[in-house]
């Protein structure tokens, strides 16, 4: 196994707050790597730096051997990095299929195509339906996103990342706000993805994390204090002290 993503000595401060503090992390190709930590540990800030929404003060991020530390956000998906949002962020005015179509198009070069009616793009539509099926949204394909249930929106979030044909998925709390039934559907979905995709998973649901993750990194005050497989993390004294003990 080789590192698909390596983050080295990353720093990011807001005012006096160190959201990311000397953070070093390696994600191997094909693994599901969970990042856990108490609220305010800086997990979403980390995702934002990996996806390019926020630039670090110092340190490096490299993806597949390419230094992407200062690469603009919209260029990273073209390398194969895709993210989801903790607070659902979709194009609410469009249907499920249209959202997926846009995600697919994003990878196919430019979209400066002013003339051909969009509705005639059958190949993309077919592909979009395939992704909808993967997250069990086939029956909801034509529904406007604003009218989906929260669970359906969360699944579409994941499907959007899949549709961009990414090599690395950054999933920011996919279980956030889900009821028990919806959560178990999402966990089933993530289990199906495991092994096929390299995934960085941020999640608060410890049961889910310890079931799903190949490896877990524990983040406290913007710093990774331990990385290991679920058993190692369970037994790690520092982790118990800093994090699990409080839970």
């Amino acid at each position: 196994m080789t590192a698909l993503l390596s983050v080295s000595q990353l720093h990011k401060s807001y005012g006096g707050v160190r959201a990311t503090n000397d953070l070093t992390l390696e994600v191997q190709t094909g693994e599901l790597h969970a990042v856990i930590g108490p609220n305010g540990a800086g997990k979403t800030t980390l995702i934002s730096q990996l996806s390019g929404n926020v630039f670090p003060d110092s340190g490096t991020i490299s993806f597949d051997g390419i230094d992407v530390t200062h690469m603009v956000e919209h260029a990273r998906p073209h390398l194969g990095i895709a993210r989801t949002y903790q607070i659902t962020s979709l194009i609410n005015s469009m249907s499920v299929i249209e959202n997926l179509q846009l995600a697919i198009h994003a990878k196919q070069g430019h979209s400066f195509k002013f003339w051909k009616p969009y509705a005639e793009k059958n190949d993309v539509r077919t592909a979009a339906h395939k992704y909808a099926a993967r997250v069990d949204l086939s029956s909801r394909a034509g529904i406007q996103v604003a009218n989906l249930s929260h669970g359906e929106q969360r699944r579409l979030e994941v499907a959007m990342a899949l549709a961009s044909d990414a090599r690395l998925l950054l999933l920011d709390e996919p279980l956030a706000g889900l009821g028990p039934e919806e959560a178990s559907e999402m966990i089933t979905l993530l289990e199906a993805l495991k092994g096929q995709q390299t995934i960085v998973l941020i999640e608060h649901d410890m049961d889910a994390v310890f079931t799903l993750a190949d490896r877990i990194s524990v983040m406290v005050y913007g710093h990774i204090i331990a990385t290991g497989d679920p058993d190692q993390i369970r037994q790690n004294q520092d982790v118990q002290h800093a994090y699990l003990g409080e839970d």
Partner: peptide, 12 residues
């Protein structure tokens, strides 16, 4: 509809 999402999808 959602510019930030479009950027994150890879649209300039």
């Amino acid at each position: 509809g959602n510019e930030q999402r479009m950027i994150a999808m890879g649209y300039n």
